[in-house]
């Protein structure tokens, strides 16, 4: 984490605590931690939780979809605070040091994601506005709720959701075991993209 801060990296780190299976995300922009997410927590609270984890699997992805800064603190104080809280919670029995399983930077997405990306680029071209494509189970519950509206009105299964949150990028969500997230430029040809993806 400190290296990311030092090297002023822009990246998204997905972590899974080995013991509990809890999952979280850290968003860095030019070395600054913008936001953290774990379950329903966001911001500093989520960062404290993540920094208190012992053994984690993590993957680092280039780029950061967020621009809004929800964490008004440097990294070091956040880590120290997380450690302090952890020490308070478990005064003894500190587990042995752990080996992080680090996947390479710019992790290659699954075949399905690559094929989807190719299809979009082939059918729409470079103007498709596609920025990033990944799977993220933090969206799963939200997708489940959105799909219920369609069920109520007998529209069948949800194929995709296009979301404009006013962020730097828009999101296209595709349901699955894990939700597939496509981040796109808000100026993208939205209707074309929707048509190609829902084919």
């Amino acid at each position: 984490m400190q290296l990311i801060e030092l090297e002023q990296k822009t990246c998204t780190i997905r972590l899974e605590e080995k013991a509990s299976g809890k999952k979280g995300i850290l968003f860095f922009n030019e070395g600054q931690l913008l936001d953290a997410r774990v379950n329903n927590m966001q911001g500093e609270a989520a960062a404290h939780e993540i920094f208190s984890w012992d053994a984690v699997n993590l993957s680092i992805q280039d780029g950061c979809a967020l621009r809004e800064n929800k964490i008004m603190s440097d990294l070091q104080p956040l880590i120290l605070e997380a450690m302090r809280r952890k020490d308070e919670d478990e005064p003894e029995d500190i587990p042995e040091s752990v080996i992080e399983q680090i996947e390479p930077v710019g992790e290659v997405p699954a075949d399905r994601l690559i094929r989807l990306k190719q299809r979009i680029q082939e059918q729409i071209g470079q103007q498709c506005g596609l920025e990033d494509l990944y799977q993220d189970d933090l969206w799963d519950r939200r997708m489940a709720q959105l799909s219920k509206a369609g069920e109520f009105f007998h529209f069948g299964k949800i194929m995709l959701a296009y979301i404009d949150s006013g962020d730097r990028c828009d999101y296209i969500l595709i349901p699955g075991q894990k939700t597939t997230v496509i981040t796109v430029d808000p100026k993208c040809p939205r209707d074309k993209l929707i048509r190609v993806i829902s084919q």
Binding site: S147, G150, G156, M159, A161, D164, S165
Partner: peptide
């Protein structure tokens, strides 16, 4: 819960099989 899931969204387009 449906409305809660829209939190933070300005505009949303949901595409289903039949609507």
């Amino acid at each position: 819960f449906f409305i809660k899931s829209l939190e933070g969204m300005r505009e949303t387009d949901l595409v289903f099989e039949k609507g």
